[in-house]
Nucleic acid binder design. Structure first.
Lengths: 227, 227
DNA sequence: TCAAGCGGAATGAACATTCATTCCACAAAA
DNA sequence: TTTTGTGGAATGAATGTTCATTCCGCTTGA
């Protein structure tokens, strides 16, 4: 990063860049092959360093991945909050956060898949409880998207569904679409993104007008049945 | 599956049961730890058979997993079609298929996660193009959910979005919620399922009334911008 | 007695991690 | 300016472990 800096340590530039090389190689490979699917040797080769070098920067493979995840996940959440204004209308805040996921995924496909891999691993399942939008590790306050949902429900603009269901309706489609986009199955243009975001809003929005099936209270669900 | 059939091979029952044990152990373990994360030895132990026995039934690990996936995926799709009536209204057909995914996931958590694991592996990425709802491997006709979308768009009851986006809006939330349910993060009761299904419909439904933001045509999308 | 099914030790390949060695940038000495 | 010495960074062969797959002897039913 910096060429000067005579104080810190010698050859800092070189040193820092090696670490970065390792990190980027790890993200790229693990996002594609998963933790157990990418040997250290492969990471070393992709990074263009010796295998032993990796252990100068990270205690072991577990630590390497955990450390990277922490950083990437944190960056991701920071990105989402960039430009976020808690005073905007519910819908605007919702769209802002969701669009952030879209854009992040498109612009950082490796990081996006890396995070996904992690959350779907036994590792991540334990962390899962804290969910995608947990604070970056410090402040204990409620998380942006949850705040939006809570505020929206208070204003009766968002459906009375369990939090988990709202989250699923909001980001499930986005994660799904971004994965398809990364896989090259679809070309996401601005219009498609905007329309999909609007559709996500439609999913969680509390309808006001008539011609609306009321939200169901516990009852009626057999495997199949014709009314 | 079948206990009778005296012709095929001797001790079919016993033989079949070992094979089943291996299959179930594989599904369970791989759904949790992934392909590379579950050694053959672990499968053997979980199944209560010798490691060598597995190779009496399957050529190698790859074949084992591929064969199981083919079968499980097929069963899954069969399940979805059970009770499906192509003459019903668009919405009913949509709900039927989506509810099927819900129920399958809740009733077959290991199989559900196994399928997920597979689709998210390098393996699955190639198969990905044929997507969740491809026919079971024979008939070349269009797939149920796609038919529903096509028909729905023709009747102007479903939004004009790319197929991939519609699929994402429909099953993204369901997959997300089922995962959370399996992880024990939420207890899915009938009401939540029904309401979530209704919300998925809201997401893809073409609005008729006024007070509706029109679908966007290509333009307008900067990282952030206030109207 | 024989054949087929089976378990699990045996085998070699692949892996994570370590370590003795080399390399390199800089600084003091000449 | 050139030489030499030094410490930390980098390396990749060596090590011990784990894995997929094979092999062999035991059991069981015919």
């Amino acid at each position: 990063m910096n060429i000067h800096s005579t104080k810190t340590s010698p050859t800092q530039t070189e040193t820092g860049s090696k670490r970065e090389l390792i990190i980027h190689a790890t993200i790229k490979l693990i996002s594609e092959y998963g933790f157990h699917g990418t040997p250290i040797s492969m990471i070393a080769q992709e990074a263009g360093v010796g295998a032993g070098t990796i252990y100068r920067y990270f205690k072991d493979k577990d630590t390497l991945v955990l450390e990277i995840f922490t950083q990437v996940n944190c960056d991701f959440k920071q990105t989402l909050l960039h430009g976020y204004d808690a005073n905007q209308a519910i819908r605007d805040r919702f769209i802002h956060l969701c669009r952030g996921i879209f854009l992040y995924g498109i612009q950082n496909p490796y990081e996006f898949k890396f995070i996904e891999q992690f959350y779907n691993s036994p590792y991540g399942t334990s962390l899962r409880r804290e969910k995608l939008f947990c604070n970056c590790g410090d402040t204990g306050q409620a998380l942006p998207l949850e705040q939006v949902f809570a505020a929206g429900q208070a204003q009766q603009v968002i459906k009375e569904l369990p939090l988990a269901a709202l989250i699923a309706l909001a980001i499930g489609p986005i994660i799904f679409l971004v994965k398809d986009s990364i896989a090259g199955l679809i070309q996401l243009d601005e219009a498609t993104i905007n329309n999909t975001l609007a559709a996500c809003w439609d999913a969680i929005q509390q309808k006001t007008g008539p011609n609306r099936q009321p939200v169901v209270t516990p009852s009626s669900l057999s495997s199949e049945e014709k009314p």
